[in-house]
């Protein structure tokens, strides 16, 4: 059985200093993994480099033991919500349908089956009553759910999600995490860029600590410790109490 994701010696640089330096790791199947690290640590960059949205200087990425070019249909992607203009003339169902485009190929239009599939995905994120709502009239949390439903419509086995919990209310956060756990139970692998250290233990069974370099990747109970977190966040992390959740304070 090949691993869903293997990354070898990945380095990415926009300017002279690298944003990601020599990252190598393997991800086993059926894990819900939180990618954690301070701002500018390269969390989103890592996802984008794996998906070849931005060029990398060196490195190899294997998805299910093959190049991404051949495994695209097995990969789902949820970009940051702010990456698109929500005033685009389209409705929620239509956005979700875009998740089917990768399976359709050139020129073919989505048919009834694709529509039914998209509706099912909207239902899974609790948004079926908003199917025909113009997307700018959805709240931030609802927009995030629509993006999630689009990724579900991709019917993938490996998912990348870029900050799905940013700017959503508690109810949406709960709905999203429930869905991610369900995906995990189905044997799918999900990588999530995550910011809130308070919920890490509750949400993820694996974490990846990133700050330009890969600090560590593995089971949460092994890595979510004071030592590792301080290594990741440098001087900006303060642990009030060993048992309570860590908080981040910016260095003055």
């Amino acid at each position: 059985m090949t691993d869903p994701l293997t990354v070898k010696n990945l380095t990415v640089a926009y300017q002279k200093s690298p944003v990601l330096k020599d990252i190598s790791f393997r991800v086993p199947e059926g894990k819900l993994i939180g990618i954690i690290g301070p701002n500018g640590a390269g969390k989103s960059t890592l996802i984008k480099a794996i998906l070849e949205l931005i060029p990398s200087i060196t490195g190899e990425v294997e998805i299910f033991g093959d190049s991404y070019k051949n495994t695209r249909k097995r990969v789902g992607y949820v970009p940051q919500r702010e990456s698109v203009d929500w005033d685009f003339p389209t409705d929620a169902l239509d956005v979700v349908m875009m998740g089917r485009y990768g399976h359709l190929g050139w020129f073919k239009r989505p048919d009834k089956k694709d529509k039914a599939y998209a509706l099912k995905c909207l239902q899974q994120v609790g948004m079926s009553q908003y199917a025909n709502r113009q997307i700018s009239q959805l709240s931030g949390g609802q927009q995030q759910r629509v993006f999630l439903a689009r990724a579900l419509a991709q019917d993938a086995e490996l998912y990348f999600m870029d900050e799905p919990f940013v700017g959503v209310d508690a109810a949406t956060e709960k709905a999203i995490i429930t869905l991610l756990m369900k995906l995990k139970e189905q044997g799918k692998t999900v990588l999530v860029v995550h910011h809130d250290l308070n919920t890490v233990k509750e949400y993820f069974d694996w974490i990846m600590l990133l700050n330009v370099n890969l600090i560590g990747i593995g089971p949460t109970e092994e890595l979510f410790t004071k030592e590792f977190l301080q290594k990741t966040y440098g001087g900006s992390l303060a642990m009030l109490d060993a048992n309570s959740s860590p908080i981040i304070v910016s260095p003055r």
């Binding site: 070019k69 389209t90 875009m98």
Partner: peptide
């Protein structure tokens, strides 16, 4: 349509 709405996603699906 996909290119106009979400270029990153369009690139992602190939």
């Amino acid at each position: 349509k996909l290119l106009s709405f979400d270029q990153g996603f369009a690139k992602g699906i190939g």
